[in-house]
Design a protein around this nucleic acid. Structure first.
Lengths: 178, 178
DNA sequence: CAGCCATATGCAACTTTTTGCATAAATAGA
DNA sequence: TCTATTTATGCAAAAAGTTGCATATGGCTG
């Protein structure tokens, strides 16, 4: 839907290569946007051909050239246009919940293991997000001001992960008293 | 990814037509699975051709025939196989948060309006989910037992929507004290 | 009585995402 | 030293999802 626009937002902040974007998605947007490297490279190619991005190639030894992209004026315009649209409600598709919905067809232990597996991932995720938050809160005021919007999205990540873990506690309690 | 399997779960509970499924997705799975009618009809066709579903046509007056699908043995097996797989972490792609991340490029009022618009939808959603919960809690024990797994997914919906609204309060407070 | 919504199904074109493959060197760990 | 991971890019095919269109009736609202 708007991977193109998520890329525009990231490149507007700072130019970078496809690989840079992959890492930024993972590190800074992991709790609200996910993209594979194949998808990112395809979109970058398209966006470059559409004139949204300018390309500068940095030769490297041994490795393929680093292709650094940055917004053109047209890209900036495309971003502003998109930001002005009203966003549609998030479309959720969560297969864990579909599996739980059909829980009467599964062994209780299999469900418990499924939840436990995801719990581990969410706990790791929470630790990572809280550590980014500590880092942010320790910044001087001017820097905090600069990252105020990314910080709001970080808060969303934290509250969202916490809500998942609270729910997992409910599920475990429920499965155990059965 | 697994719309096919979500359909299998719904049809295992009770046979139904494409239109029935559309309503069930909206009413009972809206907080964790979303699908359009086009998508559902396409998948039903595929699943029928693959031998997962048996079809019974109910002629109607004026309206097109109702095509009622139900699981075959092969469909049931496909469902059990899928339920036994370990589910991948949910892939989140939320364009509202991308827009917020780029908030420095937008007017504060536009952001507030965006949040307000979504808040209204989430509040409606919460009211609907809480009303379903009240209905569930009023059921006799045997019925509650029968819907225990769907109820767990409902709880996920409620906690998730509540977490979103709590976050929106934080965002509003933040935007207003700026 | 005109227009919209719910019922009920579907095709076709397009966009987006996933999956599998391919290359190639540096670096870190067992 | 062998192996796995990170860095760095991409093509091609398939699957999944979106958007626009098409049909047809009954009921409700302005």
């Amino acid at each position: 839907m708007s991977l193109k626009h998520a890329i525009l937002v990231l490149l507007e902040t700072e130019p970078g290569s496809g690989y840079d974007l992959l890492k930024r998605f993972r590190e800074h947007m992991g709790y609200f946007w996910n993209a594979s490297h194949q998808q990112i490279y395809q979109q970058l190619k398209w966006m470059h051909e559409a004139g949204w991005l300018a390309l500068r190639t940095e030769p490297q030894q041994g490795k393929p050239d680093r292709k650094v992209y940055e917004l053109t004026l047209a890209g900036h315009d495309a971003l502003l246009d998109w930001l002005a649209e009203t966003s549609k409600p998030q479309k959720v598709n969560d297969s864990l919940l579909v599996r739980l919905y059909g829980g009467h067809l599964r062994e209780a232990d299999a469900i418990r293991a499924d939840i436990a597996h995801h719990r581990k991932l969410y706990e790791q995720n929470r630790a990572a997000l809280l550590s980014i938050e500590q880092h942010y809160l320790a910044l001087p005021e001017t820097e905090r001001q600069r990252y105020r919007f990314p910080y709001l999205t970080l808060r969303r990540g934290i509250l969202s992960v916490q809500a998942w873990l609270d729910w997992a506690d409910e599920v475990d309690a429920f499965l155990n008293h059965q």
